[in-house]
Design a protein around this nucleic acid. Structure first.
Lengths: 140, 140
DNA sequence: CACACATTCCATTAAATTATGAATTGTTGG
DNA sequence: CCAACAATTCATAATTTAATGGAATGTGTG
């Protein structure tokens, strides 16, 4: 009775939101996606200290050069990193101070509030262990 | 001769960076990953206007309820969104003002400087229409 | 030019992510 | 309790994504 039937139109919705075109959404998502990988994030963290070439980066991270190169390509494609050739080497650096801040903030933040006991821990893709068929779990 | 052989050890590296443990990295990446999808981003954008229940959200986005629910689950698991039961409905909202700002900023930013002419266009994640035919099994 | 080093490119393969639709759980009211 | 609505869960299939190793490209040097 009291609860109205779900009616989106009953809510006040800003027009600016409706204008959110898919391209902007996709563009924004792509940037976040580029940041959403530990390997790439680690690279950015190293670059936050100053420019490094691919070989140095690979050695620092103890990773394959090819792997690092491809990660850098992605970061560059999203304008998070820039490259500059210097002789035989190609040095990579964060695109700008804005990116540097973003990365620093993010790492710091995630470090501070330890996210232990998430409402729903969803590890990197792995169907639940769930040995019992008892599906209902006690909410906390 | 001028260019020194690649020697990571020659560079001054902050200890704080070496301490960047994998867990923090992964945690941070997970948050960005959650933001790195247009569908989820769109949800957050709607929620930025105020709380909505799943059905409303689904109707607004013209998406399957199940799909929206699962996206919300992910967002909630990364503490980007919060849920609160109200009778028959479960209302979702942005976790806090911090998230709201982050989303607003990101969208705005990506809207401003049009990233046209990227060095390398990165494909985007667009999952599947999935025809409900259950005749094929993939090894996994 | 030939050589060594730096980086990128490419194909292959394994793993992760997502939408879909049916089944399940949960809530309210008659 | 049952009916109807709300939301989540689950298994599945398609697609994407990322690491690997080797080939190809680029660059400086003897």
């Amino acid at each position: 009775m009291s609860l109205p039937r779900c009616q989106p139109s009953e809510h006040a919705l800003h027009p600016s939101l409706s204008e959110l075109d898919d391209e902007t959404l996709e563009r924004t998502a792509a940037i976040f996606r580029a940041l959403g990988d530990p390997g790439r994030l680690r690279i950015l963290a190293w670059l936050a200290r100053g420019p490094l070439c691919v070989t140095e980066l690979a050695a620092s991270l103890d990773e394959n050069v090819s792997t690092v190169s491809q990660r850098l390509k992605l970061l560059r494609s999203e304008r998070l990193a820039r490259s500059r050739r210097e002789g035989k080497h190609i040095f990579y650096a964060l695109a700008d101070r804005h990116v540097a801040e973003l990365v620093a903030n993010a790492l710091e933040h995630a470090n501070e509030r330890l996210n232990r006991g998430k409402p729903d821990s969803v590890p990197r893709a792995r169907p639940a262990p769930a040995n019992g068929v008892r599906s209902r779990k006690t909410s906390r």
